[in-house]
Amino acid sequence: MFILALTYVKPNEEADKHMEPHMAWVKEGYAKGWFLASGRKVPRTGGVILAIGSRAEIETCVAADPFIVHGIARYEITEVAVTTVAAGLDILKN
């Protein structure tokens, strides 16, 4: 599993200008079965996505995020070797 933590490097107003294409990109990640959960950080300094797939797929996907393409945010990709999960969350195990 991967934790994709994005941090805005430009003001929220700039992020808002690219939010619609970013959200289309997020929906595509869900459609491909890579994204499991996502949302904004509180306070609003970026966001977090829980993802599965190969590291190469995830890195390629992140590079295509309009927030990256337009220099709005940077990503930190953390791989987690999940070994124990709550009932019903077996999809998170590597």
Rank of each mutant, 00 (worst) to 15 (best):
F67I: 09
K27D: 14
G71L: 08
M1C: 07
L36C: 03
V9E: 12
E57Y: 02
H70F: 05
W34P: 03
R40E: 12
P43G: 06
N94S: 03
G33F: 03
E59Y: 00
A86N: 14
T83L: 13
A31T: 11
W34K: 02
V80Y: 09
M19A: 04
V9A: 00
E57S: 12
N94C: 06
P66G: 01
I91H: 04
A31S: 15
E14N: 14
R44V: 14
A51M: 09
G47R: 00
A63Q: 07
Y30S: 05
R55P: 01
V82Q: 07
A5M: 02
H22G: 04
D16N: 06
A73N: 06
D90N: 14
I52H: 02
G33M: 04
K10N: 11
G39S: 03
G88S: 15
V62Q: 06
H70L: 04
D65C: 02
I52G: 07
A81W: 10
W34S: 08
R44M: 09
I58G: 14
P66E: 02
E79R: 05
G46M: 08
E79S: 06
Y30R: 04
P21I: 08
L50H: 12
A56H: 08
H18Y: 15
W25E: 07
V69T: 09
Y75M: 04
K17R: 14
G46E: 11
K10H: 11
A63S: 10
F2Y: 04
D90C: 03
V62E: 11
G53K: 10
S54W: 02
K27S: 11
L50F: 13
K27P: 03
K93C: 02
S54G: 15
Y75F: 12
I49R: 01
P11Y: 02
E76S: 01
K41I: 10
L89P: 00
E57L: 05
F35C: 03
K17N: 08
L50K: 07
A86W: 02
P66N: 10
P21H: 02
K32I: 07
G88I: 14
S54F: 07
I49Y: 09
T7V: 03
V80D: 00
W34E: 09
V82P: 06
L4M: 13
I3L: 13
K41F: 06
A37Y: 00
T84F: 06
L36M: 12
V42I: 13
G53S: 07
M23L: 15
G33Y: 08
M19D: 07
K93R: 13
A15L: 10
M23Q: 14
A51E: 05
R40G: 13
D90I: 07
I91E: 10
G47S: 05
A56E: 15
S38H: 00
T7L: 05
G71V: 06
E76T: 04
E14Y: 15
G47H: 02
F67L: 12
I77P: 00
T45P: 07
G88C: 14
